[in-house]
Design a protein around this nucleic acid. Structure first.
Length: 662
DNA sequence: AAAAAAC
């Protein structure tokens, strides 16, 4: 191949290609905005620089163009008899008789349309010739609509004038606490129960009437919780606290800092949730200054905690708000401005809102860190400390974690004062209803074995190492007739929610997930966890395994181990306290069928169920630019656009193809 | 080492 002197605008002016959005963790939102604008300015200037070079090719004599002429042998060229460029007689450019450019009589640009056309000559338009002379809308001088001063749309002020309708607080009926049934939170809490039978309603009314009595031996009452909370819990049949709750709640209620260690699924959510609600109840929250904050590592977990606490917060008259990425800003900002007592948040979005001034953590009396060991992973740590630094140091802090290693320890030392430590279990797999299997397999068998294991009846979670792997294995499973869907952080929040919902309601019985689903996520009746890729470390093993055998149910954990992973896996199992002998396995083995109950993949490809009834003709036929769905490169998958290596993590993007060294 | 968490 010969080399071409291709014009490359980027290298021509000596500038390397720069990414439009260069991210820096220590840049604030505003700073990045400014950087973007300077980038735009520079970019415009650059395109002007380029202009003189335009036409580069044709303006240079052929001889100067070097290698180009080598492409075809010159001799061939000169030997061609006719149509030598200069001899062509017809249509010689200069002889053409008509319309020399300047002589054309009519349609001279400036003359036309002056006569009878009534419309504006371009330059005669009276207004705003010079961009800068426009009198109004100078950005900085706009008198009104200063964000904070907008008069008419202040939530609290509107509707005062002539509107006859109820001012929010004046509504006479439905005193929040007295509505006997069909409370909003009740409904959302019981999302899974779509049908309200009469029996059910009657039962609820009866219970509502019966609110006064709590069983004498209700142990939650003994912990010092408000009767309202105890009643509300009892209504859901929660009358005896789990060990971790019994241990931590009294200390947390006493205002001490608490360090809680417990297995996932041991009831930590209530362990920190109840004392938090107790503390916040009855207080007054100023606009944008929440008094409580619960930090969790993933959005799914945030939603889960939010949903679990909502009905309880409701009876305590505590307002709470889910603050997480992937959800619209306005509602979150609005809620903060109105004043919300308790935030349940993922770190990124909360920092963002603080930078925007939408939230101020200076009034936080009680801060909770859930899954702290995960929150202290490399890269997650700065966000967590940033947030904790914004809360007043004299506030109460609760920290819950499955393990206490180096980084968690650092947080504990820095942010907790004389913490009371409670650990209910050793951080080991001690659930007796859980069985563990290590299958040593050939690499070539991994796919079919995964499919066999996953084709069982009941819910199954397949864990894989990477996002790409999750997508791939889910597709492979569907191709083999196993209804499976992928769940990982590269999907839009909508997809993540949908997939999790489908998994919960049973329409998709197999979830192929990265470690995003390993911690804290609770789904009932997951009978089998398959680790198609072994976990990276023993903690991950325990977290993944913890998705099954929950609440006393039975469950099995099967790990597929390639021969070269065997040694590492054995060490990991030992550290995790898992007693399992590695067994060689091939597709069709008795052990495998035993685990799966004998069902086999059909081999006929299946398709994911349609998520929702389709809405047609949105706004008259337009489809809002989503014609290809969200699940494709360049859309939704936040880090999958274009070519090049797939990005992982949310850290600053590096452009030279190398990765950051720690 | 990957994944997670902000547009």
């Amino acid at each position: 191949m010969t080399q071409h002197h291709q014009f490359d605008p980027e290298s021509a002016d000596g500038r390397a290609k720069k990414p439009r959005h260069k991210k820096h963790q220590n840049q604030s939102y505003g700073e990045r905005l400014a950087a973007d604008q300077t980038y735009d300015a520079r970019n415009t200037a650059r395109s002007e620089d380029r202009k003189p070079v335009k036409g580069y090719r044709s303006e240079q004599p052929r001889a100067d163009r070097g290698q180009r002429s080598d492409e075809r042998p010159r001799t061939e060229r000169t030997e061609r008899p006719q149509y030598n460029r200069d001899d062509r007689s017809r249509y010689n450019r200069d002889d053409r008789p008509q319309y020399n450019r300047d002589d054309r009589p009519q349609f001279n640009r400036d003359d036309r349309s002056q006569g009878d056309r009534p419309r504006f000559n371009r330059d005669d338009r009276p207004q705003y010739g010079n961009r800068n002379d426009r009198p109004q809308y100078n950005r900085d001088e706009r008198p009104q609509f200063n964000r904070d001063e907008r008069a008419p749309y202040r939530r609290d002020d509107r509707s005062q004038g002539d509107r006859p309708r109820f001012n929010r607080d004046d509504r006479p009926q439905f005193n929040r606490d007295e509505r006997p049934r069909f409370e909003r939170s009740e409904k959302s809490y019981r999302k899974d129960e779509r049908v309200y039978s009469n029996d059910r309603r009657d039962a609820q009314v009866e219970q509502a009437v019966d609110l006064g009595t709590v069983a004498e031996d209700n142990q939650f009452a003994a912990l010092g919780l408000s009767p309202r909370l105890v009643q509300r819990l009892a209504r859901d049949g929660i009358t005896s606290p789990f060990p971790i709750q019994a241990a931590t709640i009294p200390d947390a209620l006493a205002g001490k800092d608490v360090l809680g260690r417990g297995q996932t699924g041991s009831g930590k959510t209530l362990g920190f949730g109840l004392p938090t609600l107790m503390r916040l109840a009855g207080g007054r929250t100023e606009s944008r200054r929440p008094r409580g904050m619960i930090l969790v590592p993933t959005r799914e977990l945030a939603m889960q905690v939010h949903d679990a606490l909502e009905p309880l917060a409701h009876v305590m008259n505590v307002s709470l708000k889910l603050i997480a990425g992937g959800l619209p800003y306005p509602k979150q900002i609005d809620a903060l401005r109105r004043g919300v007592d308790l935030l349940i948040a993922t770190p990124g979005r909360l920092i963002d809102l603080c930078e925007q001034g939408a939230a101020d953590l200076g009034a936080v009396e009680i801060a909770v860190l859930d899954e702290a060991d995960h929150m202290c992973d490399m890269g997650f740590m700065p966000a967590v400390t940033t947030l904790l630094d914004m809360t007043p140091p004299e506030g109460q802090r609760l920290l819950f974690s499955a393990t206490l290693d180096n980084d968690v320890d650092k947080i504990v030392k820095t942010y907790l004062k004389d913490p009371v430590q409670h650990s209910t279990e050793s951080g080991q797999a001690s659930v007796s209803t859980m069985e563990h299997h290590l299958l040593v397999i050939e690499p070539a068998h991994k796919q079919s074995l995964t499919a066999e294991l996953a084709s069982r009846d009941g819910r199954t979670i397949v864990f894989v190492r990477t996002k790409l792997g999750a997508d791939r294995i889910a597709t492979q499973l569907r191709d083999r007739g196993v209804m499976a869907a992928a769940l990982h952080g590269g999907l839009t929040q909508g997809m993540r929610n949908r997939t999790l919902d489908q998994f919960k309601d049973g329409s998709v019985p197999v979830l192929v997930a990265t470690d995003v689903a390993a911690r804290g996520i609770h789904v009932d009746d997951v009978g089998l966890v398959v680790q198609a890729d072994p976990p990276a470390e023993h903690k991950d093993y325990l977290h993944r395994a913890g998705r099954t055998a929950r609440a006393g149910g039975k469950g099995a954990v099967v790990t597929l181990v390639l021969p070269h992973q065997r040694r590492g896996m054995m060490r990991m199992a030992e550290t995790a306290g898992v007693k399992a002998e590695p067994v060689r396995a091939r597709p069709g083995d008795e052990l495998v069928t035993e685990l799966t109950g004998g069902s086999k993949p059909s081999g006929f490809p299946v398709k994911l169920p349609a998520p929702k009834p389709q809405r047609f003709g949105k706004g008259g036929g337009g489809r809002g630019g989503k014609r290809f769905g969200n699940n494709r490169p360049g859309r939704g998958h936040d880090n999958r656009g274009g070519s090049g290596p797939r990005r992982t993590g949310n850290g600053p993007r590096r452009t030279d193809g190398k990765s950051y060294q720690h």
